[in-house]
Amino acid sequence: MTSEFVYHSHFWLEEPELDNPFAARHCYCHGYDVYGQVITRAGWFEYLLLLFQGQRPSPEQCRLLETLAKVLANPGPRDASVRAAMNAGVSGTTPSSALIAALAAGSGQYGGGQEVTVWLQWWQALGADLPAWQARIANPEVEEIPDIWLPMEHCPGFDPNGDSTPTPVCQALDALATQAPAQGAVTWLSNEYQALEQATGYPLAMVGVASAALADLGLEPDQATMLYLILRLPGAAVHALEQKRLGWKLFPYYGPAIQLLNDPNTPDPAREGVSP
């Protein structure tokens, strides 16, 4: 070692090639030879869970994660993260900007990554105690100290803009419940979500289902949030690419929707709807 600047890792080891200290000859993940063994012997979800958790997952865990990955792969073009990516795609920006846009719009407390964080914090605090959840829903703890995050405006995992549990949410919950541990969060949510919906006054959301599955995989809130953000990107990418192909003339322009309430002048109606 000739540099005084070093990083530390508890899971990743690289051994250099003999002719170049900056090129890895072997890479080990939690002790396993990644390019020598893992890529040919492990499945993608097996490797993902190894990365996050440091031990080889069980086949049940891999199946649960694979199902969750399919649940989350495409939130659909109405989701804020995907819409953000579509805006990037249609305007011909870089592929990375489409995913950055998706990550940003999908990072928040309404259906985004931070909602997963909060859900898992509730789960860690309350567990499978329905009365405790009902009490927390009735009297949510309001964070006293301002933060970079705004206060939560709804019960995590549920959709304040919903009426009844959407069919895909029920289908995803059913599918995950067949693979989740019997004493885990998914099973509990599957049994109790209607009681929770009664307490909140609004229905279960996909982010709640996903959060429960991530909890059952043994992930900490930050780990779960990262994985949730990653797993939602395929749909954002593909919708962005599609809008790029379709072109901006087919993309909505919301100019006429923006209603300025304190316009100092009378707008010229003829200009409304003019595309940029």
Binding site: S3, F5, H10, P21, H30, G31, G54
Partner: peptide, 22 residues
């Protein structure tokens, strides 16, 4: 930009192990 050689990532993890059938 300030490249990192392999040995500059100090490893504290588990020993090497085989990925065998489980």
């Amino acid at each position: 930009f300030l490249p990192v050689r392999c040995d500059s990532v100090v490893y504290h993890g588990p020993d090497k192990r085989e990925w065998g059938a489980e």
